[in-house]
Amino acid sequence: MKDMTASSGRTNRVTPFGRLEASRSRGAFLGNRGDLHAPDGAIRRTHAVKFWICCTLEETNGQRVVFDTPGRYTPLFFWDEAVAMAAGHRPCGQCRKTAFRGFKQAVNRSKGLPDDHFVSVKDIDAEMHASRLDEQGHQRRYRATAAELPSGSFVTFDGDPDTPHLLWEGKAHPWTHSGYGTGAGYDRSREVVVLTSRMLVETIKAGYVPLVRFPTASP
């Protein structure tokens, strides 16, 4: 077993495109998509289950040691929760109970239902899976006017398709594994490519606010 809480060259850091890459930067949240190991122990699959969750790195004693063990789940890491949501993950219902409760309420509100309407986790995960991946298993993206999107959404701009930007309080912040660059204003009437799934954009609009990890990255 290998302790994965320290910096690593493993391809277990998740981008807003949903890709798994190697990075020495530490993440603030832990992710789970099931066991992604190949028989040789390398991480070769993008997902093994439909429940993609975003967990805390801490337990009640203030410390969680994460082990990368083939045959169990493969620990993934996100810079912050906005990245996790862009990649298609929801709050964990066990280690982040309060966040998950608020998430479910926002999912209900996005559909015009009462906050306390019962919806099963299985149904949420099935809807999220259909919303985040297309028929070829690629991230399902769409175009929208920037003004339609809430703070916490990830987008790319035409002319710079390889740089994901977080829209936050009227500014677009370029993302790297080391954090966010300096935010800049943007034309709200401009069309953008949206990385955060439609379902999660609507959930954010309905009141769920992903945790964003500032300060910005060093130049």
Rank of each mutant, 00 (worst) to 15 (best):
M1Y: 15
M1P: 13
A6P: 05
S8R: 03
T15C: 07
T15K: 10
E21T: 11
S23H: 06
S23C: 05
S23M: 09
R26A: 14
G31V: 07
G31K: 09
N32I: 08
A38I: 03
A42L: 05
T46E: 13
H47C: 04
F51S: 08
C55L: 12
T56H: 09
L57G: 08
T60W: 14
V65N: 11
G71R: 10
P75T: 03
P75D: 01
A82C: 03
G88D: 11
H89R: 06
C92M: 13
C92Q: 10
Q94P: 00
Q94M: 15
R96G: 02
F100Q: 10
G102K: 09
Q105D: 08
N108T: 04
N108E: 08
R109S: 08
K111T: 03
K111P: 00
L113S: 05
D115Y: 04
I124R: 01
A126Q: 11
H129L: 05
H129Y: 12
L133P: 04
E135R: 12
G137E: 08
R140F: 09
R140G: 12
R140I: 03
R141G: 00
Y142A: 08
A147I: 10
L149W: 03
S153L: 04
D158Q: 11
D158I: 02
G159F: 02
D162M: 02
G179A: 01
T182F: 00
G183A: 02
V192N: 01
V194G: 01
M199A: 13
V201R: 09
E202H: 15
I204M: 15
A206E: 09
V209E: 14
A217M: 14
